[in-house]
């Protein structure tokens, strides 16, 4: 267990006009840790994800990332090329809608191989080998490698997006409602897949979800947001089973138990 954080944010604030989206938000994330950000729509959780990942600049506050050599980088002060390099190597982003991330007119193999090629991989055979390996890891038949994503089901598309993201072995992956667009029947399979891959590869994850069940199954720690503020944070099962803040109690008590 290391005491050095992978990602740290302090006093993040951001307003959309008069509307506060983030108010004095602190976040710490350690290597290999899964952190869930929960809250209802409009609570600021997606804004937080975008600010943490450098896609959206905060009005105030800073986000620090520690690279593999131990150097700290102010994410919002990084030059654009460095941030982009980070996003296509050390970091990953999994969208709710896989079509936002995948190239729908490029084969499954090309989609998985793109990040490798962007990093300079120039051996077709080895790119293909890794693509096959990753398709298998996300439980897509290797025989589908030359098929277009548009022939894939929603669950397969989401798994393809995960393969495309994890192929470069990122240390940190941002996930925005990864199971949000899926039927309940395929959600469980994806959750299990994410959990086992992330655990095995020791990937740190910031997971935004409105589904408390998803947070409970995946996350070590949880952040509860309301109107741009962190109202409660802690161990996932403690926050969900013994919620202290009125809003968390409301959130937990609103969940239907199957």
């Amino acid at each position: 267990m290391t005491d050095e954080t992978l990602l740290s944010a302090r006093k993040l604030s951001l307003s959309y006009g008069m509307l506060p989206a983030l108010v004095d938000v602190d976040v710490d994330l350690w290597p290999g840790e899964m952190l869930a950000v929960v809250g209802e729509s409009g609570s600021g959780k997606t804004t937080l994800l975008n600010v943490l990942s450098g896609r959206l600049a905060p009005d105030a506050g800073a986000v620090w990332y520690r690279d593999p050599d131990g150097h700290l980088h102010d994410v919002h002060a990084m030059p654009a090329p460095a941030l982009r390099t980070l996003h296509r190597s050390d970091w990953g982003f999994v969208h709710q809608d896989p079509r936002q991330n995948l190239r729908m007119n490029v084969t499954a193999g090309g989609n998985v191989g793109e990040r490798l090629m962007a990093q300079g991989a120039r051996h077709y055979g080895s790119i293909r080998e890794q693509a096959i390996d990753w398709l298998t890891q996300v439980e897509i038949d290797a025989g589908r490698i030359d098929d277009m994503p548009r022939t894939f089901s929603g669950g397969m598309l989401q798994r393809l997006q995960i393969a495309r993201t994890l192929v470069t072995h990122p240390r940190l992956v941002f996930m925005d409602e990864p199971t949000g667009s899926l039927d309940v029947s395929v959600q469980a399979r994806l959750l299990d897949l994410i959990r086992s891959l992330v655990t095995r590869l020791n990937i740190a994850v910031v997971l935004v979800t409105h589904d408390i069940g998803v947070a409970r199954l995946l996350a070590h720690r949880i952040i509860v947001m309301q109107r741009g503020r962190v109202v409660e944070t802690g161990l996932t099962d403690q926050v969900l089973d013994d919620p202290q803040h009125p809003y968390t109690q409301l959130l937990v008590s609103s969940v239907l138990h199957a």
């Binding site: 802690g234 161990l235 099962d237 403690q238 089973d241 013994d242 202290q244």
Partner: peptide, 9 residues
């Protein structure tokens, strides 16, 4: 029990 486990605060 739950307090001992840290499940309750």
């Amino acid at each position: 029990m739950r307090s001992l486990y840290g499940n309750y605060r």
